[in-house]
Simulated assay, not measured.
Amino acid sequence: MINLNDKNHVPIILTILVIVLIMIIGFTSHQREQIFILERGLGNVFLPIQRVISKSMSQVEESLVTLIRSSDIKDENNQLRSVNESLQHQLIELQLTQEELSELRQLQRTLNSIDRHDDFFPVTANVIAKNPGNWFEMFTIDAGSQQGVEKDSVVIGSGGLVGRVYETGHFWSKVIAIIDNSSSVSFQVLRDGSLQGIISGSVTNELSGYLFDPDAEVVVGDQLITSGIGLYPKGILIGEVTTIDRTPDLLLKSVNVEPAVNFNRLDKVLVISPRTIDE
């Protein structure tokens, strides 16, 4: 038994410790080599798995990025769609405003061509209803007796003569157009006021009529205006002559006329009180 307190035994103890240390170093060195071999084997097994996992993680990451980006793109598209819809609405409103302004200017030009008196008070109205069919041969406007509209008031549109009022309410009136088969208008040729006649509507919503003088030198393209005889004041454009013929008895020269007003589409009209017509 070695006494650790004995100084004579110290060299022996040191020698034993050195031997043990050398053995430990040798053992661990050999063990580390075995660990390297184990690590190498495990690396060969798990490296492909690691690659798959790494690739999968990359794909997941890309998918997440794409998903997040898609959400951002969707939000941006929604914002752009909203902006686009807003711009479209503004464009439509601008176009409507320009169309209305253009129509009002045309109405003003038509108004300026009519013989007027001091009590000439035109009323602007909107078309709010019409009879079934493609043509505006009978329709309703949003102005009535409260606005000064009376029965037989004259109605004009952008371009020329529309017709007359045949019934009124407080805030509405019903209009019969010159293309209706119950309407007739006294006209004269704009180029030569001495050439006059009568024009009427028809069941086919076409304008046709005849000249009083069978020898009147009317030609295709002549413009016809109201003559001032009867209900309508002088100077309102009616339309343009498209064809010329003779009546079956050859006593009158007949004409077919293209209306100056588009009776397929009417939005705004001017109404002239009949009291302004009488001289």
Rank of each mutant, 00 (worst) to 15 (best):
G133H: 05
T140V: 14
V185W: 03
Q88G: 02
V52R: 07
M1N: 14
S194R: 05
K268A: 05
F187W: 08
V165K: 00
L80W: 01
T204M: 08
W135Y: 09
S70F: 11
R265G: 10
T168N: 01
I68Y: 09
D75G: 09
Q88L: 12
D152E: 11
G144Q: 02
I199Y: 11
G148T: 11
G228P: 06
V257G: 09
D152A: 09
G193S: 13
V10K: 13
F121M: 06
I2V: 14
M57V: 14
F187D: 01
R109T: 15
E85G: 00
D222F: 08
S158T: 02
I37P: 00
E279S: 10
S200F: 04
F120D: 06
E258H: 12
D142V: 07
L104G: 00
E206D: 07
A177T: 07
I19C: 01
S102D: 12
R81T: 14
V269M: 04
S183C: 06
N84V: 15
V220F: 02
D213A: 10
E62K: 12
E33Q: 10
E62R: 10
H89I: 14
S82F: 04
A177S: 15
S71K: 02
S56W: 00
L87P: 00
Q188A: 04
Y210W: 10
L101E: 06
Y210V: 04
L161Y: 08
R275L: 05
K268Q: 15
V65T: 12
N8Q: 07
I37D: 03
I13D: 00
H30D: 11
R32T: 09
S208V: 02
K151M: 08
I176T: 12
S202G: 07
V123H: 02
N3G: 04
P132S: 08
I92G: 00
G26I: 15
E137D: 12
R40V: 02
K7E: 04
L270C: 03
